[in-house]
Nucleic acid binder design. Structure first.
Length: 799
RNA sequence: GCCGGAGUGGCGGAAUUGGUAGACGCGCACGACUCAAAAUCGUGUACCGCAAGGUGUGAGGGUUCGAUUCCCUCCUCCGGCACCA
């Protein structure tokens, strides 16, 4: 055995041995106790893996190794999300076809992952740009089409001028493109949509059954945005039309004094025909860009239509106004103005001098007229000036009035959602082609399954122009005419890459099977994913799409579970001076120097030791020496065989370490698990070495965290096979207990002393001994009012 | 504005149900080894104070014998939603 810990030769040696022995290949059929641990797969960009990647992938690998030692048949696959902009942009820049660059990048990344020492089963890897994979992306589209969940519609869509393609609602963050930060524009275009809205309620209900961070569930709930309210129908004086207003606060309807409709509203359009003021207001409002609208702030503008709606409750005439603060796309595009209890309505009323009525008593009992915005902001209280609702709490009143209006036929209870249908078409080359063809009349037809994979043509300049570059392909046109007949044309858009990643969890299990998406028995056995790990930025994108697609697939009868990911964990983000690491920003820190110098194991240990996995943090390498010293110390004590006799101290320390490491890794708190192992090593150091049995147990504890080093230790201890195949140690609770304990003594809540006592000391003895302590006696002159003994911990005296 | 999460030494962070705040590690200081440096090992290290002691977990209150932990008010940071009716 070499005297010094030489990480690079040890790591190369064990990576080779694992590979030769196919140590991490899983037989999906034979596994008895399946555990599917999945980490969100990466884009195979040309850049080398940075520190952020190591964090994201090496830590879940340690968790998977831990579960494997727990006796689970762990499936921990890795694949590549290869379609999409990073690969395509790289191709545009270099002129190399994405197909080739992707292949190269994937090979390089696999080598890097191997150097990390991950237990991926490479025999089951996948790549979304592979025809064997995207055949299923297209198959999914066909199933959505067959089941009426895919449709084509003209309407305003989000268009990113940077990426030159349409985006889904989820991909617009703060008005900007999630990928490239360009300001997103609204454009009227005909696009393919998937009906996510049909699943709004089920997407909400499903959240109750899955073990996800509350934060993420909350984000999805916000995104889906369920609202319950009532559509109140108002008659219009001197008109046969009606205006329907959506509100969640019908309790305040006795305070309604006007109605406001959106510029896009049908009635507004009608009025505009003979009313010049309204017409010009509408034109100006509709032509406003999002930016102009934002600059305007909350200042209210509007135009009076000259018409009045009748409030059935009060028989009051309410003027109907047009204003752009009412959104055409939300609710019914019309609101009833209750200026006393809604901030926007109040602002509007002030601007145009409309009547304000108080219908809720303020918390301080104030029932005076409402004249300031502060009075409006209060939301809770008791009803007033509201006829039969007077004296009721607003919540009770809400129910009462809804019943009343429904009974009279004035209104209809309604539930609305914020969630929109998913725009799946993209005007980009590098994606999965939508498997649709158009007949000579322009009617869409699905490409029959037998023609899948519907191959991406290669005779295309893939530079984006705003329309799909695939339209240039002669080959595709000819292919369509040959199969379907003269005058038939292909759909030339590709699918959002989030479609590719919405079902990959099933394809890992299919092992390339081209007959079914996933074999039924395998699906039943392995799904849902037991542990899914990835960043929180996907909360309202990938994680909603994957849930929606899985629910649809269950409805179609292809899979057994409606939820894809039973447990979800978000790793923290590793930043560099506060900014997310990325190649494009040029702030990615390479782990190579550290790995060369200290080894993959030490680097992995450091990633975990920095803090809880959920927290991430700003990159700083100052602490890496500490874990490196630890690895060296372990090597020195175990490999160089500093033997010593088994002792009570060692056994106790080891059992404490087992307990702590087990509990901490279970909740992915690797930092404290490692510190527990360090503490044990410090005890060994003091004892002058370690006994053979403890060394074996310790090596097992180290195995998930520093996999290569642990194998080397295992071998040096004369053991056969891989330590990673060993069973995780258990501790003996009896051995954790020591004979004596330290009891602290408090006087008036302040610690004044401590004493050693036997574990089974009685309460009376403990208190007596506590009082006898020199330093304590000093503080307890006079009457003792209270004596408290917390078993095995402390004595508290009050004087 | 609304909904989440978080604020602890010089730094990363510990403290699962209220029970000795600061584990573990970095850094720093001193010492040993060395001609010297690195590496390694040892000792110390929240703050104020010579000490006795006092003060300390974003700020201020409260409950309790005892609060980083529970309750109230406020501040700051991060994430999400937002003229959404």
């Amino acid at each position: 055995m070499p005297a010094e810990y030489d990480s690079s030769s040890i790591e190369a040696k064990w990576q080779k041995k694992w590979e030769e022995a196919k140590a991490f290949e899983v037989d999906l059929n034979k596994s008895k106790d399946p555990y599917y641990c999945l980490v969100m797969f990466p884009y195979p960009s040309g850049a080398k893996l940075h520190v952020g990647h190591w964090y994201m992938y090496s830590v879940p690998d340690s968790y998977s190794r831990f579960m494997k030692m727990q006796g689970k048949d762990v499936f921990h696959p890795m694949g590549f999300d290869a379609f999409g902009l990073p690969a395509e942009n790289y191709a545009i820049k270099t002129g190399v076809h994405p197909n080739e660059s992707i292949k190269e990048n994937v090979d390089v990344m696999i080598e890097q992952f191997k150097r990390m020492g991950c237990m991926y089963d490479w025999s089951k890897s996948l790549n979304t740009s592979d025809p064997a994979y995207y055949r299923w992306t297209q198959w999914l589209f066909l199933k959505m089409f067959e089941n009426d969940l895919a449709y084509k519609k003209e309407g305003d869509v989000n268009y990113c001028p940077g990426c030159k393609t349409v985006l889904a609602n989820e991909q617009v963050w703060d008005g900007k493109c999630e990928r490239c930060d360009s300001l997103v524009e609204q454009k009227p275009l005909t696009q393919w949509y998937w009906k996510t809205t049909k699943y709004s309620q089920r997407l909400l209900d499903g959240l109750e059954k899955i073990d996800w961070p509350e934060k993420t569930k909350m984000m999805q709930m916000n995104w889906i945005g369920k609202k319950q309210g009532i559509n109140i129908s108002y008659d219009i004086e001197e008109s046969d039309d009606k205006i329907v207003c959506f509100t969640t606060r019908p309790d305040t309807n006795f305070g309604a004094t006007f109605v406001v409709i959106a510029p896009e509203h049908e009635f507004a359009q009608k009025v505009a025909k003979d009313n010049k003021d309204v017409a010009s207001y509408i034109e100006a409002a509709i032509n406003k860009t999002e930016l102009e609208r934002q600059e305007e702030g909350r200042k209210k503008t509007g135009a009076f239509t000259g018409f009045y709606a009748i409030n059935q409750l009060t028989k009051k005439k309410m003027p109907i106004w047009v204003s752009d603060f009412v959104l055409g796309g939300f609710g019914t595009g019309a609101v009833v103005g209750v200026p006393g209890h809604d901030v926007r309505d109040f602002e509007f009323a002030q601007e145009f001098d409309l009547e304000v009525i108080r219908v809720v008593v303020a918390s301080d009992g104030d029932t005076s007229e409402i004249t300031s915005i502060e009075q409006v902001q209060e939301a809770e209280g008791t009803m007033i000036n509201s006829d039969f609702l007077d004296g009721m709490d607003i919540h009770e009143a809400t129910q009462k009035i809804m019943d009343h209006m429904a009974e009279k036929g004035w209104g209809e209870r309604i539930t609305t959602y914020r969630l929109r249908d998913w725009t799946v078409s993209r005007q980009r080359y590098w994606g999965s082609l939508i498997p649709i063809v158009y007949d000579p009349d322009g009617k869409p037809h699905p490409v029959p399954e037998e023609h899948l994979p519907w191959l991406l043509p290669t005779d295309v300049e893939f530079k984006p122009t705003g329309t799909s570059p695939i339209a240039q392909s002669k080959e595709l046109k000819e292919r369509v005419e040959k199969i379907f007949g003269k005058g038939w044309t292909p759909e030339v858009d590709t699918m959002d890459t989030f479609v590719c990643s919405s079902f990959y969890q099933f394809r890992f299990l299919a092992e390339g099977n081209q007959k079914e998406l996933v074999p039924k028995d395998i699906d039943k056995k392995w799904m849902p994913v037991d542990m899914y790990i990835g960043g929180p930025e996907h909360a309202c994108m990938h994680l909603i799409y994957a849930r929606f697609v899985t629910m649809a697939l269950k409805d179609f009868g292809f899979v057994a579970n409606a939820e894809p990911f039973q447990k979800l964990f978000h790793q923290g983000l590793i930043t560099n001076k506060g900014a997310k690491m990325s190649k494009s920003k040029g702030n990615a820190v390479s782990p190579d120097d550290f790995v060369n110098k200290y080894g993959s194991d030490a680097f992995r240990l450091y990633m975990m030791f920095m803090g809880p996995f959920s927290e991430g943090g700003d990159w700083n390498d100052t602490g890496i020496k500490g874990v490196c010293r630890f690895a060296q110390k372990v090597y020195k004590i175990i490999v160089q065989n500093k033997k010593c006799e088994q002792s009570k101290e060692l056994t106790t320390a080891l059992n404490i370490a087992i307990k702590k490491a087990t509990e901490d890794i279970e909740r992915l708190h690797f930092n404290t698990a490692i510190s527990a192992l360090m503490e044990f090593m410090n005890v060994c150091d003091k004892q002058g070495g370690i006994d053979a049995e403890s060394a074996k147990t310790f090596t097992k504890l180290l195995a998930p965290l520093a996999p290569h080093l642990a194998e080397e230790l295992w071998e040096s201890l004369g053991e056969k096979g891989f330590v990673i195949n060993q069973k995780w140690p258990t501790y003996d609770p009896k051995l954790i207990k020591t004979d004596t304990i330290t009891i602290a003594v408090q006087v008036n809540g302040k610690v004044r002393g401590e004493f050693e006592a036997s574990v089974d000391i009685s309460e009376a003895d403990a208190i007596t001994q506590a009082k006898e302590l020199q330093n304590v006696a000093k503080f307890i002159e006079g009457d003792i009012k209270k004596e408290i003994y917390v078993k095995g911990k402390l004595v508290s005296l009050v004087v």
